[in-house]
Amino acid sequence: MALALHTFPTVKDAGAALKAGGTRYIGGGTLVVRAVNEGDVSISGFVRSADPALSVIRISGGTVRIGASVTMAAIARHADLAPLAHAARAVGGPAIRNMASVGGNLFAPTPYGDFTVALLALDATVSTDDGELPIETFLAKRESNHAIVTAVGFTLPKEGGFRFLKVSRVKPKGVSVLSIATVLEQAPDGTVSSARIALGCMADRPIRASAAEKALIGRKLTADGIAPALAVARDGTSPPTDPIASAWYRNEVLPVHLGRLLLA
């Protein structure tokens, strides 16, 4: 193997180096180094930035900013990010979590990207060296976006407002059959006043369940109240068939798991 690793003090310099053909940005390397080990000859060099800001978690007044190089392990152990710890711990085993970065997770293809599902439900903003984008827009064109992600930002949900579920066959660590994250707000009478539902493994990248979100508004979180949302949960999905599960199976179990999460 003859692959150059170039480390730059600033994101700007790293961005300039990425313009060379065959270069890839490297975060924790759990996907890109694996690709090279598997024989991906399209990669001839790695680029990274050692800017310390990329490894910082900043929380002020309920607003969170997580640097792109922050690992899943760092998120899972951060006391102020306790509501998200479950989602960060859903990524791989302990060694993977010590390496896997937030930035890399945004690019992880299905069946990976579990933490990105959480970020999508949180309606995060993705900051790059080329400006900021809503996460949904970022995900839609992530292959053609050659900018370096510097951070993700979002508002911490109210206590109990964020829910996350990863379904896998191997416990405690396994690749996703699917994952679901929700951010719900309820009026004083218990009816849902706002709902964001994000799905992993129900398309080639995390997607929002827009029809189910709409169907939840004004409903209570009871079996009857959520029934219309579950009935349209599969709208717009196109899950893959892979060694973990078939597309048919994923579609069959999605409403079941969404129902359990909403009633939890």
Binding site: R34, N37, M99
Partner: peptide
Amino acid sequence: GELRLSCLTLAEA
């Protein structure tokens, strides 16, 4: 002090 996978870690890093 952290568990890592040496097969996915570049020695230069």
